[in-house]
Design a protein around this nucleic acid. Structure first.
Lengths: 264, 264
DNA sequence: GACCATTATATGGTCCGACCACAGCGGAGA
DNA sequence: TCTCCGCTGTGGTCGGACCATATAATGGTC
């Protein structure tokens, strides 16, 4: 059954509600865009289980023909779903080729969150508070659940941050990795993903703040390094309370320079 | 300056990481697609502040000509951004027409997070822990920041839950509204959005669990109602510690029936 | 001059058909 | 047997055309 969105001059309005009298909502609205119908069909297949994670969708040309729409409409639908991390698109003819249902939307989540923070839709204070909340939780669990491998990796990061040829950008990256590492060691995938997303979203603003510090940066970096060491030690000791507390004060300190006036 | 993505045979690989020896990751990856470059250009404009929320982007045809790409490439970039809630597209010639930078990203964020939670198959225990973490934070802030309007609304929800003609589905909806209301009263938009997304993602599973309870549901609902009243009172009293504590125990209780074995 | 229907214009929405680049497969040749 | 090269199928890109819509400009009518 082709996706005949409209026949010559007519339009699907999606307006069937038996509107009662009075000041009825006279907005049929919901302009139906073909590519959205395509999205609906695909989502149907996914929620019904016909399409499982990893499965291949028909080729664009085939699907277009099957649904009775143009290839462009199918492509735009794919794009929208890909942007949400639902689909993965690859060229070629191998087993990995074609368009498949994706398994890990984590990346999409971080991309989206980063963009929104960049749009300044969230006050920095809110973001910082969210970070504190997330990472306190992660630190608490990491203190009891971190495996030797996790700790070793964290230690390496700290060593690299001590290196003299670690500039601000590198420091920023390593700091992000350190915090993400703790989140992942905490063992809660969902919390870790949110942590990553938020830390990543602050990557650029944080670096900009570092750059603005000028020579004041060096003592501050030294302070942050000490914080990291203390947190690291708490994790090794399995001291959840200390890890939690140190993490909070460390994050607050990170933002004190640059956003002092915006934080309570 | 046209968006020359590639020159005859060469390819941007985005592969710069100095991979150490051993089992190095030998995947150059990151094929550069034109529409992604278009996205980059748009994001540049946004983060640099040239494009503010509500601003209009050039018309598709114009932007395509300006960037030296086809209109289809521009459209696919727009689609991806629209799917993320960054852009809004309208036809016509009025002040609202054209493609503009969207103002309300919350919806897109919750959509994506919900999808993320639904598709990623997180362990219930992880989701519950995340919920507790988020709502403790919200409850704590709501206790001190909730306005009379917020409290009144919460009270109305509780009254409706007491109504005899409040079945399980309605109860589930009202419960979700109650928790979302607290999150919004907390005043942190980002935390509230995450709370909404997670609570929404558990809507169906929770309802299914309620239905499975049979007649055991009635005493449990009574218990949950009491919890709500207690939390509500703590908020009115401005008792942050109590609100936090009660919220945690309430959420744990909600999941105890149905997922008892999966929670520690 | 005020009002209303008509036309103009600009926008996104859709479609078609073609070609390109890439990845794998298989057959032809060494 | 092994290697290489072309075939095939996939997404990626392009240009152009037309449609549907929403506002603005125009003009006619009273």
């Amino acid at each position: 059954m082709p996706l005949t969105a409209r026949a010559k001059g007519t339009r699907l309005t999606g307006f069937e509600s038996d509107a009662e009298a009075g000041d009825a909502e006279w907005r049929p609205v919901a302009r139906t865009r073909t590519y959205e119908l395509v999205i609906d069909r695909i989502e149907e297949q996914i929620v019904s289980g016909t399409l499982q994670v990893g499965d291949r969708l028909p080729a664009e040309r085939d699907l277009a023909k099957m649904l009775g729409v143009s290839r462009a409409a199918v492509r735009e639908a794919f794009r929208a779903l890909e942007a949400q991390g639902v689909l993965r698109m690859n060229v070629g003819t191998g087993p990995d080729s074609g368009t498949t249902v994706a398994a890990l939307p984590s990346e999409a989540l971080t991309r989206l969150l980063r963009l929104h923070v960049a749009l300044a839709n969230f006050p920095v204070a809110d973001v910082v508070r969210a970070r504190i909340m997330l990472e306190r939780e992660s630190a608490r669990h990491a203190a009891t659940r971190a495996r030797p491998d996790d700790l070793r990796r964290l230690g390496e990061l700290l060593d690299e941050m001590d290196s003299p040829d670690c500039d601000r950008a590198r420091f920023n990256d390593l700091d992000a990795e350190f915090h993400v590492g703790i989140a992942e060691a905490g063992g809660n995938r969902l919390v870790a993903d949110m942590t990553i997303a938020i830390r990543e979203s602050m990557r650029r603003p944080l670096l900009a703040a570092f750059d603005e510090l000028g020579d004041d940066w060096y003592p501050i970096a030294e302070e942050l390094r000490h914080h990291h060491r203390a947190i690291y030690q708490a994790l090794r000791d399995g001291d959840a309370d200390a890890a939690e507390k140190l993490t909070e004060s460390h994050i607050r300190a990170s933002y004190r320079h640059g956003w002092a006036q915006e934080l309570t």
